[in-house]
Amino acid sequence: MEIWILVAVIALLLLWAIVIYNQLIALKNEVKNAWKQIDVQLKRRHDLIPNLVTVVKGYMEFERETLEKVTAARARAISTSGLREKVSAENLLSQELSGLFAVIENYPVLKSNENVLQLQEELTSTENRIAFARQLYNDLVANFATRIESFPSNIIASIFRFRKAEYYFIGEIDRSLPVADMSARPK
């Protein structure tokens, strides 16, 4: 009789562990997926920038430096890997972009150019999407962290070595220059 009770208790415990484990895996995948979403949006931005540069180039003979800066920042953002480096590279790119938009404001020809306007809208939208994807990612990371740290799921988490995911912070570069907020809306 006692044996059966013991077996039942162990079976229940095992079942509970499996459920918790599966929940943790689901959360982890959600986080991963959200990170991919950010990547998709970042890539979208990388693809848009060359178009903008080619359209703008002809009009902006004297602003070669600004354009080169944007191109260089883009190249750097594409080549880096790893969360921290990536974040700082992307932040730099955002900053250079808003610099470019500020310059465009000074050229009435550009400001009324249909192509530029359209690209500007696309980039604004992409900036927003990046910000929103980041918001979603951070929300999910927080969810995951809560689950890992709170009792009793923390027992399972520590046995199977679940690690907290890193938040997507706005990096140091960004803080030093308040203009380059990721949600900055150039227009």
């Binding site: 979403q37 306007l117 359209q118 809208e121 939208s125 929103f132 994807a133 999910l140």
Partner: peptide
Amino acid sequence: DGIHRRLKNIIDEIHVVTGQ
């Protein structure tokens, strides 16, 4: 239409924030 395209963009942005 430029303005309508903007509307479409904003809806897509909302899709992003809700995780599609």
